[in-house]
Design a protein around this nucleic acid. Structure first.
Lengths: 246, 246
DNA sequence: CGAAAACTTGATTAGCATCAAACCAGGTGG
DNA sequence: CCACCTGGTTTGATGCTAATCAAGTTTTCG
């Protein structure tokens, strides 16, 4: 029933069925609890519910008092914030292996809205669980800190690569970033024009024009409105010329 | 000799002279080691050298293998990153009480260049010191994590408030942010036009024009090229109308 | 004092926002 | 099944904002 079982055919040890969910999980090595051994997982898996969200559904809301962080197992989640002028800006994207809502682990309210961009599967990590484990597993705190630093790097990258330069440059950089979340079949999730605008600080119209232009240039192909196939060589070439341009 | 002594006249306990440096430090309650008691400080102060930097001097460089974080005690430090197009962008400012270069505590290289904007006084916190202390003082790790989260919030604020909207709006927001680092006499550090441009993603010329306009409007006064006196009511009013504008 | 750097101001232009109108896909109800 | 509506997308025409190019002016510093 639980979607994770789809990879569990090769189960070999005596861990109970639910623990296999964690052990077999495709992102475990990437995830927060990746540092734990199977025996430790055995004791906690039942306290880490896995959840699913459909596109547009909120995982959590800014300023809400949260008690859990989330490990993204599948799909893409966006973190967005309102600004003082009433607009909204997407400040980060999270994909498989990423941990979001870490601030809940500090007893703080969530700093941003988290919304599913695609169908999403996540594991919910309650704060109390982390508190308990961190005593016995000091590795875990270190891993948490690394994740904070990674999130910070990510934020800085948005500032340096996705917030300055010509609209065309920023769009190309976004496509490059989206390729990180690509499916094995070469398809990448293509955000709505609205979402693109909110990530890159431009209007829907401009985003649409740029995507159309890139399609004409063969950088991009859209078998489906919400999916794209990127021609990476063409993309890299376009980036190179866009860099000269300004 | 050491500048910190300037506040130590009221020393009352038997801690040695150097320990008083920390105990009396104006930002101790804000700083990382603020959670430590005086007795603990006694044992570590001599391993926390205090340093000074002049405007333009680097505290550390991106990608350099660092062994220390820094607590800013006085002045303003900017963190900047090069982008793929060869430009540079200032991604954050750090003032008294802020901790920068935390990534060194994880054994990572620095993620950005840190440069003094004003005369700066900092305390250098070696990684080994934190490693030792964190065993006995679990509070410390928690405090570190809070600081990471705070840095992340800060980065998100730059994305939402300083990277989108009209040039005028962004400049006004920058002035508001700079007021956080204001001196007791009401003066705030005014960045060079170049620096403003690098923070707000605009050219020097545009930055200059906007500052000039705000001076004419009485939002701003510049007794000295590098300092400003802000008329907060006028600033807030200008922000309000700039928000309507777009 | 003179040179270099930073800042200011003006004129022109390019790029993107804005306004407006089609276009298209997916869903609903007759 | 089709007509219709709705929300997202695309495309076009126009205007404004900020970049660019180009002098000046002021400040800094050797």
């Amino acid at each position: 029933m639980i979607p994770l079982y789809e990879h569990s055919a090769a189960a070999s040890t005596v861990y109970n069925p639910q623990a296999r969910v964690c052990i077999q999980c495709g992102v475990r090595r990437l995830a927060l609890f990746g540092v734990l051994d199977p025996a430790a997982l055995e004791n906690i898996h039942y306290r880490v519910p896995d959840l699913r969200f459909e596109p547009g559904q909120p995982l959590f809301a800014a300023n809400a008092p949260g008690t859990s962080a989330f490990t993204v197992r599948e799909g893409v989640v966006r973190l967005e914030r309102g600004n003082e002028r009433g607009g909204r800006r997407i400040v980060r994207l999270a994909g498989p292996g990423d941990l979001i809502g870490m601030e809940a682990m500090l007893g703080q309210t969530y700093a941003a809205d988290a919304l599913a961009c695609t169908p999403v599967k996540v594991c919910r990590l309650p704060r109390v669980l982390l508190d308990e484990l961190s005593g016995a597993q000091p590795q875990l705190l270190r891993d948490m800190m690394k994740r904070w630093q990674a999130a910070l790097d990510e934020a800085d990258e948005w500032l340096t690569e996705l917030s300055v330069g010509s609209a065309r440059w920023r769009m190309l950089r976004l496509l490059l970033k989206l390729s990180e979340f690509g499916q094995p079949d070469g398809q990448v999730w293509l955000p709505s024009r609205q979402e693109m605008g909110s990530m890159l600080g431009m209007t829907v119209e401009t985003a649409s024009r740029l995507v159309s232009a890139l399609k004409r240039e063969g950088v991009l192909d859209t078998p489906d409105v919400r999916h794209a196939v990127l021609q990476m060589p063409a993309l890299m070439a376009a980036l190179k010329t866009a860099a000269q341009g300004d």
